[in-house]
């Protein structure tokens, strides 16, 4: 069953079209990853799905409800965790959770009981009375997620849940996401950590320049990527000038220089390392390291979006 369905979704800002008629669906109970570079239209799409923006065209159906006309009903069954922790600085963790529960009409006893439960589940029970502003980044992130699920939503929108936090907190958050999903919550996740997407998601949609360019299962994406064989060389001298010679000598490969001293060779057929070693040797270029790369989801992302992940991570973390 499709719990989220977007059809021909368009968002215009004056003459600029941020989202260009996208179609996708999310199955009930799955973790759906929504990936794309900065400015691709991810946030605008999430804003339309959650009611912070109105589509210029198209339809949204969430749990069988019209996501534009019945947005207030929809907001009662979804939880939203934004990319920045947006709870109240002067209020304690417990107080913040109880307040968020009141927005969903939960009765006093129920909201206090749920707040205690979540503080314990997120290992924050010792700090429930501490003001939010005194929390560490990882703790803030966990409490923001707890606030997003205080009303036990059927669908949870998670925007960059592990960005800018320590490794241990990120690990705990990944575990929490998996647990929530096991308990039946459908999760719509955006992240630029491809490892998170690979580990957590059932399916992934890629959005580039306002268009959804690919939606597939993680397994299918990996299988597709691994059809390609990649050899990577770290050279002592610059290797960029060798491109035409290499392609003449090995017509079955394509070459992508990654830096002055690093080159990657790709081929649809398996490659033997030795002919390449001889090639470099004949030109007096020492090879420091050579390895056969097993293409990962990261390769898929780079191929589909044309964006180097290292650059994307830097941009994102710089913003935090």
């Amino acid at each position: 069953m499709h719990i989220i369905e977007a059809r021909n979704l368009v968002k215009n800002f004056g003459d600029f079209q941020a989202v260009k008629g996208i179609d996708f669906f999310v199955e009930q109970g799955e973790i759906f990853g929504f990936l794309g570079p900065n400015g691709a239209g991810k946030t605008t799409t999430i804003n339309m799905l959650t009611g912070l923006a109105r589509p210029s065209e198209g339809t949204i159906t969430i749990a069988g409800l019209d996501g534009v006309r019945n947005i207030k009903k929809v907001q009662g069954i979804i939880g939203i965790v934004p990319d920045e922790s947006n709870l109240y600085d002067d209020m304690g963790g417990f107080e913040n959770l109880v307040f968020c529960a009141s927005l969903y009409g939960m009765k006093k006893r129920k909201r206090e009981q749920r707040a205690h439960e979540l503080l314990a589940q997120f290992s924050l029970d010792d700090t429930g009375n501490r003001p939010f502003k005194a929390y560490s980044k990882g703790m803030k992130r966990k409490l923001t997620i707890a606030a997003g699920i205080i009303h036990e939503p059927r669908i949870l929108f998670l925007d960059e849940p592990t960005t800018g936090i320590d490794v241990e907190s990120a690990r705990q958050i990944r575990q929490l996401i998996a647990t929530l999903n096991e308990q039946g919550t459908t999760i719509f996740l955006t992240t630029h950590y491809i490892e998170d997407a690979e580990r957590l998601c059932d399916r992934i949609g890629f959005i580039v320049g306002g268009s959804v360019v690919k939606v597939s299962t993680v397994q299918a994406l990996l299988t597709e990527a691994q059809q390609e064989h990649v050899l990577q060389f770290w050279l002592e001298a610059s290797g960029t000038h060798l491109q035409s010679e290499l392609l003449d000598a090995f017509p079955m490969v394509s070459m992508s220089p990654e830096s002055d001293h690093t080159i990657s060779l790709r081929s649809k057929v398996p490659m033997d390392l030795m002919p390449f070693m001889h090639f470099f040797d004949a030109r007096n270029i020492k090879v420091r390291e050579a390895r056969l790369v097993r293409p990962s989801l990261e390769e898929v992302f780079v191929k589909i979006t044309g964006i180097e992940l290292a650059r994307l991570k830097k941009e994102k973390e710089g913003r935090k």
Binding site: T50, G51, L52, K72, K73, Q75, G76, I80, P82, N86, L87, C100, L103, Y104, G105, A147
Partner: peptide
């Protein structure tokens, strides 16, 4: 934003 996203 949290208030705007609530179901009231």
């Amino acid at each position: 934003e949290r208030l705007l996203l609530s179901p009231i």
